[in-house]
Structures are given as C-alpha cells and as structure tokens.
Design a protein around this nucleic acid. Structure first.
Lengths: 341, 341
DNA sequence: TACATTCTTTGCCACGTTGCAAACGCGCTG
DNA sequence: CAGCGCGTTTGCAACGTGGCAAAGAATGTA
C-alpha cells in the first residue's frame, strides 16, 4: 500500500526522476537502454503513477461525471453502458451520480458546488430540470453536455432527441392500426419538465392529423417513470367508462407496468389494448408480448456526446452546438393490428 | 473556468492562505470576524476547493471504484444504485468500470495496473475471475471488497452470498410443488467460475434430497447471463424428448429469457413449466407471469460492503473478514403449483 | 507589572507529478 | 580540431492544498 514514486524508480534505475516521467509518458527522445532500465525498475517496484499528482500538474483528471436520475432505470443503465464504453475509447473513465429526481440536487451536481474540480467534464441527463439550466452561467461550470432534452438554449452542447416527433410517430402508428381511443401515460404535474411536455405536444398533434378528438380523461400523469407508475396509471384508464383501445407510454418502463395492468385486468394485448413506449430497452424485446417502441440509439447518443465533450474540453470557448439523434419506430407484438379492424 | 485558489481568497479577505484553509475545514479556533470575512470572500470569488490538490495532500480522493461485468444487467444496475447511495452516506462517490466478462480486464482493473492511485478503495463484483484473485497479493493493491463470491480465501474482505444454499432453496421449492424433471440453466464451460459451480452443487444436492435423479441433459450452460442466453438454453431444453417441467435459472435475467422461450413454444407457465431465478430484480416482479426468485438484498450487500470498505481504508492491516448476506425465497406466479399435482 | 496560559493566525514545507529550459554528450561538418 | 546541431538527460519550480509547529495576540493569574 505504501506509495512507490518516480523517485524510487529513478534511484533503482540510476536515472533522474524526470527521466522516469519521460519514459512513462512515452517521450520521444529516450534511449532504448534507459527505457529498458526504467521499465524494469517500474516492474520490480510495482510503480503506478499517482493520477492525483499528475492531474494536479496537468489540470486533467481523465474522469467524467455522468449525472442521471437513477442508474437502475434500464434506459439510464443502458445509456451508462454506452457512455462508459465511449468514454473509454477516449481515455476517460466515468463516475456516476444519481439525482433521484431531486431538483436541488440536480442543480448542485451541475454547478459542482460540492463535487469540485475533480472532473474534466459532465454528461448530464436531466429528467426534470429545465429552467434552472437556462439560468446557469455556462462559463462558470465545467464543460457540460446535456443529453436528451430538446429545447436548445445555445448555452450548452446538446445531444437531443426530437421528443415531439417521437411521440407523434408513436401515436400515429397506433392510429394507423385502427385505434380510436388512444391514451397517453407520462405527463407531469410540473409544467416545467420539457420532455413530457414535448411528448404530449406530439401526441396531440398526431391525434389531430388522424382526425381523432382530444379527451382529457385519456391523458394521465406519472410521477416518476417506473413500472409501478405505468401500472397505476393504466388501472385508472381501464376503469374509465370508455377505456382506451391503445396506450402510448412516455417510456418503455411505464409501458412494462401498463402491460402488466392490462393483463391483470383480463384484457388482451394487442387485441383489446395496444401499447407502445419510447426508449427501446432490452427488457421490452423479451416481454410478453414484445413491446413496440420508438428506439433511441443509445450508442449514437453516447458516441456523439463524447465527441462533443472532448472537443469542448480541448476548446472551452467554442460555441455550443446541438445534435439531434434520429429515432426509429419499432413495431412488435404489442401493437399488431387486431384481426378485426 | 479559471481556477480561484486559497491565495485569491486570502488576498481579498486580508488574511493568510492558511487561515482560509482553516475556515474551509472548520478548524476550531477561528474568530468570528475572520470567518465572516473569509466566507464573504469565498462567496464573492466563487471559490471551490480543488479536490485534486486536497487529495494529493491528504492521500484521499473520496472516490471508490465499482467494478462490474456490465452495468446494464439489471442485477448490477440495481446493485450500483445501492452502492452509490451507501457510498454517498459515507461521503464517497463511485466510479464504475465494466469488465465485459473479460478475464484479463478484470485482473487489470483489480491490480490497478492502469487505473492508478485515483481511488480510495474498490468494490469488485467478479462474474468470472476466481483463481486469479487468489493469486493476487492483497497488500499491493488498494483496499478491496469482493461482492457475491462465496469461496473465502482470507485475503480479501468479502460480502458473500450462500450460493449453494440459494440454489438448494430454489430447487427444493420446485420439487415441493411437485416438479419431477427440474432443469438448471446457467452452468459455465469454464470450471473456474465459482458462482455457477456453487449453484450447480446446490441444485444437485436438492435433487438428491428430493429423491430425484440427476440428468445431464437437464443441465445447460449459458455463456453469459443475458436474456438471450436463457432463451436459447430453454429452447434446447424444450426440444428434448423428455423436456423439463421446471427450470431453475442461475439468474433472473436468464429466467426472463426462459419465460419468453416457454411461451413462444406455446407452453404455459407454471402449468407446463415452472420457472425460478435468483436475484429478485424489479423486472421479475412485473413480468407476466411474475417471476419466483431467490432474493438477494442489494441494499444490505451495499451497506455492509461500505462499512467494511471504510473500515479497511482507515485500517489497511486489519484481518480480512467475511460476511454472508441472507437470502429469501420469494414465491410468485411462475412457480405456483399446477392444479393437478 | 510580570509571567503563564489559552486562543488565533501564520510561514514553511511536502504530497508526486510534469513543464520549462538549460545542460550534457555525441557525431558530423567544415 | 574547432564548432555546430541534434538527440538525450536533467534540475528547478510549481500545480493547490493541509500538517506541523511556532509566532503573535489576548486573557488570566500571582
């Protein structure tokens, strides 16, 4: 456990500490002989560079922070996997923070008011905050990339999803299979959360274009996007005098709960009720029935996010950019057209 | 972005840098007047202590590494959530590395041969490595806690699960509901992986105690523990001349794939085939039918692991201990006794 | 008033590393 | 053989912080 330093290596190899550093950092002009001796000494002593010291000197830590609401929500764990892999390709490692849907905590994490100066950059996937972000002075915080929000303020780099369009596509798909009473699950009581707001907008527009009426009874909030919330919301929908024949859930996880609720109520999917989500989590592919969804390509999101972040770390003053990642409708068993139109 | 240091604060507050440090660290003997002035200066300049420098000085980083095979496997993402929360309670933050089932990478991560000296400790959940761990000299690496393995070598602190017993309980439960041909899914080609070996041992012992014969055809390997692996293994089982009437999967995720395969084959759960897993992931609670399982309490695992790790960080030379976390059989719909015994 | 005691504040230094630029050594050229 | 240039190695200093112990100020005691 005792720290072996460049000095120890230098002494053993019979060179200066500085030369050891040169070897470790692959400096060009090092003779083969010296390199061999130094490497042998490193090996013998089990020397490992102290990253903290190195980073104090260079100002880089090689660490990024990924901030998500909850890591055990499949969308975020799948995203985290992609992010960690993408970061690894750029030589970075990823620390994960959870906000637990807590506004104030999101803000703290983002401004670094507690987690100071230990990271080279931040990847932030805000579930809830929006206005707060706009208030922040982007020049005072670390290089930051926002993931998944759509409203672009010009202050932060942004890997966005076209939420409105995704919701529109999902709802239109349901209408195209002959559904007439299409419910939406996942609105939020707080108006400020932009993702659900955008999805609701897309849902309503799709109803308009399909010539279907709006029905407030069919638009149900979900406090968080857990299976349980989808389950509860769907039970409420099924208890209506005129229950829906299709449910568009604002996330796949909500949809998993919805599917369970429909089957618990003794109704069939998709014959009685069709269900579609957004995210394309692995779980939906193996669900019974398999879940139709709007796929967000997490690998593309992660790859683009890391390109942007690395670029911004190297050039902090560059103008903020926005990238919209395309999505794809994936039709599976949960929305197959029923035998009778 | 430019770094504000104690010196800047000291200059503005009209005190020495050292005094600023005293204020920041809540040193006892600081006059109220000075404290006020320093805090005001900190506020005005937006000073944030540089953790890298602090950590270089104190030798602590406040960072832990959590090493798992894949973060998007629900068991590990749920475990990660618990670990991050538990770490947070001790003032630590958690960096996550994925081994991707890669032996050599597990070894590298564990010995820190690349990730040098940046963490105060390691939480390591090895899916595969076992012998390698035994070879390591525990005194040369960071404080490390192993999660989930059972074989205790006395070299590392260990939060263990009684794998043998868990598998025994699961299999015995299937036998108790009248199943006669109980399959096991999840053995590994490589004999060295101890978790599957222990589970197989428990499975076989349960068969013995229930008076059921062993049948090699009913013991199926799964390369990794993904839904797809469970699906493929189960298809093979169902294609047997004498297919099983119950399947014990070595993880819930395997079981999710197994359930899908059974239903794709037009057979009913639990009437034709009962299925049980291990892990108690949230997904299984909402599956259709809901999945019986052996629950491993991830919060307890995480809490105990952090207690141990913090203790070891403070006292590196203390003897290694092992804690076995209890498990619980949870009966749900996937193993309800069929109407006819 | 002189001295002991306690409370505050400070200067110096080191943590382990790398940037900088100077120094060294060697072979080549004129 | 002097002089030059390139390849190689090195000493010094600094990144920003906190440990240490001593200096300085304030208070209490004889």
């Amino acid at each position: 456990m005792s720290q072996v330093t460049v000095k120890d290596v230098a002494r053993l190899a019979g060179v200066s500490p500085r030369t050891v550093s040169n070897v470790v950092n692959d400096y060009t002009h090092v003779s083969d002989d010296v390199r061999r001796r130094v490497l042998a000494a490193i090996d013998e002593l089990g020397y490992r560079p102290n990253l903290v010291a190195r980073n104090l000197r260079t100002g880089r830590t090689g660490l990024l922070a990924l901030i998500v609401p909850e890591i055990d929500v499949p969308y975020f764990s799948e995203l985290a996997r992609a992010v960690i892999d993408a970061a690894s390709a750029h030589g970075y490692r990823v620390m994960i923070d959870q906000t637990g849907h807590d506004h104030e905590r999101e803000r703290q994490l983002l401004t670094g008011s507690d987690r100071t100066m230990l990271f080279d950059g931040i990847l932030f996937s805000p579930l809830v905050t929006q206005d707060e972000i706009a208030d922040l002075d982007s020049s005072t915080i670390l290089p930051t990339i926002l993931l998944g929000e759509h409203t672009f303020t010009g202050r932060f780099d942004h890997i966005a999803i076209d939420n409105t369009r995704a919701a529109f596509d999902a709802t239109t798909h349901l209408a195209a299979t002959g559904r007439r009473r299409i419910a939406a699950v996942g609105t939020q009581p707080r108006e400020t959360y932009s993702t659900p707001r955008q999805r609701t907008a897309g849902y309503l527009r799709a109803l308009d274009e399909a010539g279907l009426p709006h029905d407030d009874d069919l638009v149900v909030p979900a406090a968080q996007y857990h299976r349980r919330d989808g389950y509860d919301a769907t039970r409420r929908l099924l208890a209506l005098d005129a229950p829906p024949d299709a449910i568009f859930c604002y996330s796949d996880l909500l949809a998993m709960g919805a599917m369970r609720a429909v089957q618990d109520a003794g109704r069939r999917i998709p014959e009685d009720v069709a269900i579609i989500g957004i995210d394309d989590i692995e779980e939906g592919r193996f669900a019974i029935p398999s879940l139709s969804t709007v796929a967000l390509d997490k690998d593309v999101i992660a790859t683009r996010a890391l390109e942007q972040l690395v670029r911004r770390i190297e050039e902090p003053s560059r103008p903020a950019t926005q990238i919209v990642v395309p999505h794809t409708l994936i039709e599976r068993d949960s929305t197959r057209a029923p035998a009778t139109g």
